[in-house]
Nucleic acid binder design. Structure first.
Length: 600
DNA sequence: CGGACAAGCTGA
DNA sequence: CAGCTTGTCCGG
């Protein structure tokens, strides 16, 4: 702090040499620049790195974050004062981490600062609450896994799907404040409840952001919690580190909570502990994996039954005899099919033409409700047309791919019991002993719902999905189902025409290592992550940007494409890729850079 | 992002 | 040449 005996700040625009000046990153899309402002004497104590402020920029009031205090502004500028101090913001270390993430995923700092901030203004902090949960009575087979951790890279603990992570988290909380990142809000509230029951002070973010910022024993939250405040942090824990929900896949920047957690822990000099029943190649590449004994691991995976459908007549449809008899035999079953609605793909029974939207070309689906014949609707542009073929006018249409609604109707008839339906859009579902749902059903239910069996109706859809990590995600589904079904006592059934797939072998023997051993050579051959680092570049401004990348000295990146106006940029590792992407100035216009996306 | 301002197009 | 559109620049 300079100018202890500072004179009163004059209202004049020309700063006095000793006036306190801050540097601010604005919360305005498109303004990726820092601006300097004077700190009014009355609020100087509240202004630190991370503080959220309001400033006047070009005649309008906008939000921003203080990223430096006591800077030397460029000469000859008439500085404005800060309009207002909005309240507490991210810790200074997280402001730095936002800069790292902006580099790592070719994004903007404000995206990450915004994620690291409270949902509503926090003018004052509550009192800290440091009470940890009671230490677990015994850790059993997991005790050895908690041997001293390296501080420079994450460690993955391979715990079976049905294993409870609460004792591990409680044990680590004995060392001081911990940050726990989980893949879903549901998972977070379950864990929070258990830790609170054990007497721990727990802040669940984003709701309890202010308490987390003030200081508490355990901070828990979903993906964005990788950016939650946690004063005195001693360990970062990621639960289900394989889960794709830990990565932002929809919009750029496509950051990943496991990578943020790892870097955050490394910078703080504390361990990053990742727990996963099925560590991905990305996790294996990031750091060592610690295993329990095989017997313990087996106990946490459900018995898997593979129904080989290669010999079945395709006209038999989605339901093998074995599937139907198993569902009849089980007291409570969940069936999973990753498609909503009645019919996801229709063809004309006379001319064979696919039923597509005449306006936008996407496949029309059958309206899920209403009178028969059900009209056809376009999921893309909401065009509606009666059930006729646009080519030949025939009204006879054939179902090529069936959706969840249709399946629940058909199963009800086949099994002779009422069937409920759960999709991501479902608010509440009936208390039936058979449920049919999209993958969302696995996220909505918990082991406490006592569904002892999970059946995947069309598992090949998962195994063959056009995503880089499709196989790993398929194994993750089986792990999730195993947890829901209650481990060894539960049952998981899959219908498939690829019964020898490594995913199924791995789940059958409760050994996820079988899948990684098979996947790594594929990634090596195709030169895909984690062997390389890739980015997909698209948008109107992509072409000049790629010209810039191609012109970089020593060609650090390989450029492939364009394929449908998208280019693929490959480098030997994430740092080389990030350096290259940052070295080229972004041309004006819209440009999307997705680093390490789910699909290419 | 959104305002300011400059350069380009149009029509009477 | 007013009146309007389109493009580029800039903000402390």
């Amino acid at each position: 702090m300079k100018g202890g005996g500072r004179r009163r700040a004059s209202p004049a625009a020309v700063p006095e040499p000793e006036a306190l000046v801050t540097r601010v990153v604005t919360d305005v899309a498109g303004v990726d620049k820092e601006f300097d402002y004077l700190v009014p004497a009355g609020v100087a104590a509240a202004v630190r790195v991370g503080t959220q402020v309001r400033i006047e920029l070009n005649g309008r009031r906008v939000g921003g974050w203080v990223v430096a205090v006591g800077v030397e502004p460029p000469t000859g500028l008439a500085l404005r004062p800060l309009e207002k101090v909005r309240g507490w913001g991210p810790e200074p270390e997280l402001v730095d981490l936002a800069g790292w993430a902006a580099w790592r995923w070719a994004g903007r700092r404000r995206t990450f600062l915004s994620t690291a901030s409270a949902p509503t203004a926090v003018p004052v902090l509550p009192n800290p609450s440091w009470r940890p949960p009671a230490a677990p009575a015994g850790l059993g087979a997991t005790a050895d896994l908690l041997a001293p951790f390296p501080l420079d890279r994450p460690v993955t603990l391979r715990l079976a799907p049905a294993a409870d992570v609460t004792p591990v988290v409680a044990e680590l909380a004995q060392r001081g404040p911990i940050l726990v990142i989980v893949p879903s809000v549901n998972r977070g509230s379950t864990l929070a409840t258990r830790l609170r029951r054990a007497g721990g002070d727990v802040a669940v973010v984003p709701e309890d952001w202010a308490q987390a910022r003030a200081g508490t024993a355990v901070v828990i939250g979903a993906r964005a919690a990788a950016w939650a405040p946690c004063p005195g942090l001693t360990t970062v824990i990621v639960v289900d580190g394989h889960d794709e929900a830990l990565g932002e896949q929809q919009q750029a920047p496509t950051w990943n909570a496991v990578a943020v957690a790892g870097e955050r822990a490394r910078r703080a000099g504390v361990p990053c502990v990742v727990v996963s029943p099925c560590p991905t190649l990305d996790l294996l590449a990031a750091g060592p994996v610690r295993l329990t004994d095989r017997g313990t691991e087996r106990q946490g995976w459900a018995a898997l039954e593979v129904v080989d459908r290669r010999q079945d007549d395709p006209r038999l449809g989605l339901y093998s005899d074995r599937l139907v008899s198993r569902i009849r035999a089980e007291p409570r079953v969940v069936c999973v099919l990753n498609r909503t609605g009645r019919a996801r793909l229709l063809a004309c029974a006379s001319c064979g033409e696919l039923v597509r939207c005449e306006r936008c070309g996407s496949a029309l689906i059958q309206q899920p409700e209403g009178d028969t014949p059900r009209p056809l609707v376009c999921p893309q542009c909401t065009l509606v047309r009666p059930q006729v073929c646009a080519e030949c006018g025939s009204t006879r249409l054939r179902l090529l791919r069936v959706g969840v609604t249709r399946v629940s109707e058909e199963l009800e008839a086949l099994v002779g019991r009422p069937v409920g339906e759960v999709t991501s859009a479902t608010v509440s579902w009936p208390d039936t002993s058979v449920l049919v749902g999209t993958e969302a059903v696995l996220h909505r239910l918990t082991p406490a719902d006592h569904f002892g069996a999970v059946a995947f109706i069309d598992f090949d859809q998962e195994l063959l999905a056009p995503r880089i990590r499709a196989a790993e995600e398929a194994l993750a589904l089986l792990a999730h189902a195993s947890r829901l079904a209650g481990g060894r006592a539960g049952k998981v059934l899959v219908q498939t025409r690829i019964p020898d797939h490594p995913v199924l072998k791995a789940a059958l023997s409760a050994d996820p290592g079988i899948l990684s051993a098979g996947e790594l050579p594929i990634r090596q051959t195709l030169r895909l992550p984690p062997v390389t680092a890739v980015a997909v570049v698209s948008g109107p401004a992509a072409a000049p940007y790629l010209d810039g990348l191609a012109a970089l000295p020593d060609s650090p990146v390989e450029i492939l494409g364009p394929d449908r106006d998208r280019w693929l940029v490959k480098a030997t590792d994430a740092a080389v890729l990030a350096d290259a992407l940052a070295a080229v100035p972004r041309p004006a216009g819209r440009l999307r850079v997705a680093v390490d996306p789910a699909r290419l």
